[in-house]
């Protein structure tokens, strides 16, 4: 069928047949609807964050960001990302290596289980750690007897974030490494390279952009997670508030400039993430 269609198409290369192109008025109105929707639903909120943050002037904005509670929240957010992102990255690489370089039983089940946290509501992701470490939880008594605080403390926040961001790196690497195959690595190994040397000199250069992509998304979610962290944090100002929680606490206390000032930092993070993401996609497309 296509063999017949092609010559016709080439003959009319300049003027495509009526049935192949949308009329101009359809073109224009659909483009207007799409652009209008994106501007209204996506651009406007981004702009409003900045407008609201600076609504009382630069001075108020700056003091809202430099007050101790906001500073503590930023530090905790950074700490959370610094702990969870490397752990989930190492896991992602190890899981992708095991799944894509070897055949074993239960492989597809394992791949499904890795994606599990994505289909669990953030609130439930928090709840399960309350059930584990709360006063009535499995380890509750043991923890309080040994004076270890997990829930309503930093370890709980780290665990909940670890759960939420668990699949990000693995799910970027698995399809890529599957597609790449292992011929290059086998060649290096058969020439006498050690396993680690093969990984760092052959595998890593091939997967580095996808790896960065996964790390980027993992980091954005680790810094921005709200629902799960909100359940386990206890909202103790200056101690267990991450930046998104600080946004909520400030907003609920009618400190709108404070809320939007912190929100503007997170919105900046989102924009940087999107820019880097586009750059990485562009790089991958060129490969």
């Amino acid at each position: 069928m296509s063999a017949i269609a092609y010559p016709i198409n080439e003959a009319k290369a300049v003027e495509r047949p009526q049935a192949l192109r949308d009329p101009d008025w359809v073109r224009w109105s659909l483009t207007a609807v799409a652009v209008g929707f994106i501007v209204l639903f996506l651009c406007l909120p981004l702009g409003i964050v900045i407008i609201e943050a600076f609504s009382k002037g630069w001075q108020t904005y700056w003091s809202a960001l430099t007050q101790p509670d906001a500073q503590a929240a930023m530090q905790l957010t950074l700490l959370t990302a610094l702990v969870t992102v490397p752990l989930n990255t190492v896991f992602g690489v190890a899981a992708a290596w095991a799944i894509t370089r070897f055949e074993f039983r239960g492989k597809s089940l394992l791949t499904t289980l890795i994606d599990l946290p994505f289909s669990v509501s953030p609130v439930i992701s928090g709840l399960i750690f309350v059930l584990l470490f709360g006063a009535q939880g499995w380890f509750g008594e043991w923890l309080s007897a040994h004076d270890v605080k997990v829930l309503f403390a930093v370890p709980g926040i780290l665990l909940a974030t670890l759960f939420i961001t668990f699949p990000f790196v693995a799910r970027e690497l698995i399809p890529l490494m599957q597609e790449m195959g292992s011929e290059e690595e086998e060649a290096a190994l058969s020439l006498g390279a050690s396993g680690w040397r093969t990984f760092f000199w052959v595998t890593l250069p091939n997967i580095k952009w996808a790896l960065l992509y996964g790390v980027l998304l993992c980091n954005a979610r680790a810094m921005g997670e709200f629902g799960a962290v909100s359940v386990v944090s206890g909202h103790i100002r200056g101690l267990t508030n991450t930046l998104p929680l600080h946004v909520e606490v400030s907003y609920n206390e009618y400190d709108f400039v404070g809320a939007f000032a912190s929100a503007s930092i997170l919105a900046g993070l989102a924009i940087v993430t999107l820019i880097l993401k586009s750059a990485l996609e562009w790089r991958q497309a060129r490969r």
């Binding site: 996506l42 909120p45 953030p122 998304l217 921005g224 709200f226 998104p244 946004v247 907003y251 997170l266």
Partner: peptide
């Protein structure tokens, strides 16, 4: 992709 990248609390208050 903004809704993926923007923390939900920020989206909420905005």
């Amino acid at each position: 992709d903004l809704p993926f990248a923007l923390p939900t609390a920020v989206a909420g208050i905005v």
